[in-house]
Amino acid sequence: MYYDHKKVEWLKERYPEGTRICLNRMNDDPFPVESGTLGRVDHVDDIGTLHCIFDNGRTLGVIPGVDDFHVIREGSEQTEEEEMNMSM
């Protein structure tokens, strides 16, 4: 999935470096990171992929709108569910 420049800029603002996420499920990866794995965003590239470093040592790109994940708010047990509308 590719996003236009405006959507990529929004993703970069929405998921800055260090954003903590919890992966719910990867849909199209032959060697997915396990569901429930926590990680942090290293950077968002120019096509909108979130490159993440997971707590189990794996690094892998997460694709908003394809992979299922949610943001973890630091210092809180609560999470923010991601309801991404990719029709921008």
Score class of each variant (00 low, 15 high):
R25S: 07
S35C: 12
I53L: 11
H5V: 11
E17H: 10
V44C: 08
K6V: 15
E74L: 08
C52Y: 06
L23Q: 05
S76E: 13
P30D: 04
G36Q: 00
R20Y: 01
Q78R: 11
D67P: 07
G65D: 07
S76I: 09
H70R: 10
R58V: 05
E13I: 10
E13P: 03
G18W: 08
G75R: 11
V8N: 06
V71F: 07
S76H: 00
R25T: 01
R58G: 06
P30C: 07
N56V: 05
F31C: 03
Y2A: 12
Y3F: 15
N85I: 05
T37M: 12
F31W: 00
H51M: 10
D28S: 14
E83V: 15
E80K: 03
H5D: 09
S76C: 14
E13A: 15
T19G: 01
D67G: 04
K7P: 08
K7W: 06
L38R: 13
P32Q: 08
M88R: 06
E81K: 07
G48P: 03
Y3T: 01
G36H: 07
V33S: 02
P64C: 04
C52L: 04
W10L: 14
L50F: 04
M26V: 09
S35Y: 07
G57S: 09
G57T: 13
D67E: 12
L11S: 05
H70Y: 14
V44D: 01
K12L: 10
I72N: 08
F31T: 05
E83G: 06
M1V: 02
T49A: 15
M86S: 10
E13G: 13
D67K: 01
E13M: 14
D67V: 07
M84K: 13
G57P: 02
V33C: 02
R40M: 03
M84Y: 15
Q78E: 12
R25K: 13
N85R: 07
E17G: 04
L11G: 02
R73A: 11
E17Y: 06
E13Q: 15
Y2V: 12
D4W: 09
G65P: 00
